[in-house]
Design a protein around this nucleic acid. Structure first.
Lengths: 151, 151
DNA sequence: CTTGACTCTGTAGCCGCTACAGGGTTTTTA
DNA sequence: TAAAAACCCTGTAGCGGCTACAGAGTCAAG
């Protein structure tokens, strides 16, 4: 099968497949005489694996690790469990951060319960207050609320 | 004051300030004879405003909108309220998405409660299952869990 | 033999920075 | 007075994970 067919079967864009090959997640395949990439069902499975992982918001690096386990079927999968635990912890932390962010935003929102002149807007005034140094970690806060365009 | 002093006062990196100027969030300033940028307290306030907004995970575009309100102190601030409401809704949606993601991950995690051979790992096997087309929105899912490096 | 659908490579853009390289200026120290 | 250190400048490239071209080649159907 050619790249377009693989794309359809794994609900992926053609460019994304080439990108994954370039990134080392998909192997370089055989080519036809006309230099077209040739795929089979195993590629569909591997690409599905990757897309499933992406759907769970894993990074390509995390997926690389998982693929290494998948490629060594005789070895122990303890690392898989560990990676998943770490990823769950990661998501949990992000949820907490976003919840705290939401509380801050709601508090700020109350500073201007109704429309008035901008110079009297409690929101704008609070936002002008001086920043404090980030207490714990580096600048960080939430990060990536805008990761993907909205539906 | 020079750029380094402004950076300190607003807990920002020097490069970030130049980036904001280039991005049109900070005005182009006067220069010394030696071509150094010169700032005053108003710049500290404006930069603090921006950093506060970034700390609330607003995009630079959202901040541009808010700055336009701040720059027109006589106009109505209704748009500020609306922008904040939209941003809160945005964050709320993201939290929901991440929570659903977390549930999926926890379910997946149960597929392999203990280390075994990779070929028998329920996690790896589930991940290999074929992807389904995204039902509602385009590919999207959570996006940006890895937005910022971990603390 | 032309049209159209498919494929190829390579590059640029998105966001919000960050980190250089390779220079110039100003202040401090010896 | 000179050298070293600290600061500043511009411009460019990189991060992740794609997406969207441009400009070309390949292949099947009419």
């Amino acid at each position: 099968m050619q790249i377009g067919e693989l794309a359809k079967r794994a609900y992926t864009q053609v460019e994304t497949i080439r990108y994954y090959e370039h990134a080392g997640l998909l192997p370089e395949t055989a080519r036809t005489e006309g230099n077209y990439r040739v795929y089979d069902d195993q590629h569909v499975e591997r690409l599905s694996f990757i897309r499933n992982c992406r759907g769970l918001d894993m990074s390509l690096n995390e997926i690389r690790v998982l693929l290494r386990f998948a490629d060594a079927p005789g070895a122990s999968c303890a690392g898989v469990d560990a990676l998943l635990d770490a990823h769950i912890a990661h998501v949990t932390r992000r949820i907490k951060t976003l919840q705290s962010l939401k509380r801050q935003l709601q508090r700020l929102r109350k500073a201007c319960p109704e429309a008035r002149e901008a110079r009297q807007c409690g929101i704008l005034n609070e936002l002008s207050a001086h920043v404090r140094p980030m207490p714990g970690a580096p600048a960080q806060h939430a990060g990536g609320t805008h990761g993907i365009r909205d539906a």
